[in-house]
Write a protein that binds this DNA or RNA. Structure first.
Lengths: 153, 153
DNA sequence: ATCATTGCAAAACATTTGCACAGTA
DNA sequence: TACTGTGCAAATGTTTTGCAATGAT
């Protein structure tokens, strides 16, 4: 049963349970379902859109949007999800199960393209140490117009 | 009168007036005062804090916060100001009169340190062209703990 | 004179919180 | 059992919008 397909999710789940235990928090269906929905739908979610998806997928649980917010905040504090903010609408979240990457965002269609930035990281470390700054994370977003939208113009 | 001190502001103002004219928009005291206040107080502003400062400085104009928002949005669309968003509170804006730079943000005290990133830009262009993406701008924010706050810990 | 802009208040969003009840350990 | 989590609705915070009056060209 525990085939390779589920290994990654299982390890996320174990990590989540660990975090909960270490903080004297409880493992609940709602928390599990929020994590699982993010995993099964590999995208960038707004709290609202994740909420809709969770409700559609698990209507019997009757999950409230407050719980989605609470769970996302918990997951973010525990570094299991990352948030991006751009544009005028609120944040978007993604599950941190992929290797580190950054984002290119199309101004016209809001599409998000992920890319890896081997090499830029080193430069960032250099800059930070120059200012005595202790780096914990970074956000790099490139804005512009994607291939498709360039054709439309 | 037009000494070197004011040249930079004057050129901003000319640019602003140009933008207004090209869009059939009008040059008003309120719009001018928002721009001027940003220029005179070289910082990163939330719309709210800029509003307070404008009211303090020009109480007789009785500028409303809606106008501050409208002006900031206008200035941003015209690329005269840039916005950063981070944390859970809203956006911060800065006037785009400095050479391009990025930001280091302290997680503890929210201080913003600016730095220049000669060299990273080239890499960004490379990445973008690999995806057929037409780059118009970018955002790079390094998060961590600043020198002062490290000592406090 | 014409048409955009303004301040105000209300509306629209986005997110958080208080509380009584339900669920986990 | 003890205590945390939950949904709900209300509260909060941020940004936008409709409107009648004002101001710029």
């Amino acid at each position: 049963m525990a085939d390779i397909e589920n290994m990654e999710y299982d390890s996320l789940l174990v990590r989540f349970k660990d975090i909960l235990k270490h903080n004297n928090l409880k493992f609940t269906k709602q928390r599990e379902v929020v994590l699982k929905t993010m995993y099964n739908n590999d995208e960038h979610f707004s709290p609202e859109s994740l909420y809709v998806l969770v409700k559609e997928t698990y209507p019997e649980l009757n999950v409230g949007i407050a719980t989605v917010y609470r769970t996302l905040n918990l997951l973010e504090e525990s570094d299991m999800v990352t948030s991006l903010s751009f544009g005028s609408s609120g944040k978007k979240f993604e599950l941190g199960n992929k290797p580190h990457h950054d984002h290119m965002i199309c101004k016209m269609c809001d599409e998000i393209i992920e890319f890896e930035d081997n090499g830029i990281e080193k430069k960032q470390e250099e800059i930070a140490s120059k200012y005595g700054f202790k780096l914990t994370s970074h956000l790099m977003q490139l804005y512009g117009i994607c291939k498709k939208c360039q054709k439309k113009q």
